[in-house]
Amino acid sequence: MALRKFTAVRNIAIFAGVLAACLLAPAVVRHYTGKAFEEFRAPLDAIPSQLNDLEKFWDLRMNYSKSELIEVGRDLARLNAGYAIKLTENEALKSRVESLEKILSLPGEEKFKMEVARVARRDINAWWQHLIIRKGAAHGIREGYAVIYGGGVVGRVVKANTYTSVVELVSSRGFRMAAHFLGEDRPVIYQGAGSLSFQDARGEVRDVPADLKASTLKPLQLVTSPLAGSFPDGILIGDVIDLTLEPDGIFRSGTVRLPRTLGGVREVAVLIPVSDLMEE
């Protein structure tokens, strides 16, 4: 009886001690404990994605014949060979541009390096508009870096763990950036507007000069602005089909239709500023 009582009291004391330690621990200790926990937990986000890849691999092995797979592999090899040639051409052009820049004493055009990453998880609902990608600080990714894909802007890195990163999507209400319309250089402000149930993701554009108009027949393409320095110029954000004049009579505002492919994005590229790479 006495032993049981002692055990119960001891358990309560341990629990109270841990609780007190959590509450009273210095902020630095709590911060690093939290970070360590995040890092420890981070692979859990990546593992399902990797299992998914494995599942697809076995799916191919089980459902397709060897000859079919070989045929697809050949096609892929041909495509890769084509891309390799293109890459070589690009490299040649790039070095030519660099040499011309040197001759003309122009500042270098290349401001970003791309780090391609695979999407591990998607948290897209009315509250959260996040992606988790399978690359992190170990690959040079830091918070605030821009993330793009073939269809345009994906978002911005809001958290960089060692091997994974959290990307806030362009449709998130917390995402705001400078932009401009294609063929226009006057800056406007874009902000995500979330996504309603059964509807595409959308955003809002404001501070649009009053002389700009958009319609379904003549939509305006909203693209990134290089003004803030985190995005290169001209990457598609979305289309604007209607701009309403604000009561001040100076600006218009409107809704931005984001690309539908944004919801199913699998591979993204994180833009790492060259200046940051040079610092490192």
């Binding site: 209400r173 705001r176 950036m177 400078a178 800056p187 803030a228 320095g229 985190s230």
Partner: peptide, 15 residues
């Protein structure tokens, strides 16, 4: 300035 506005629009959290 336009540049300052653009930078702050991106760097200041919305809330």
């Amino acid at each position: 300035t336009a540049r300052e506005h653009a930078i702050l629009a991106e760097r200041i959290p919305v809330n």
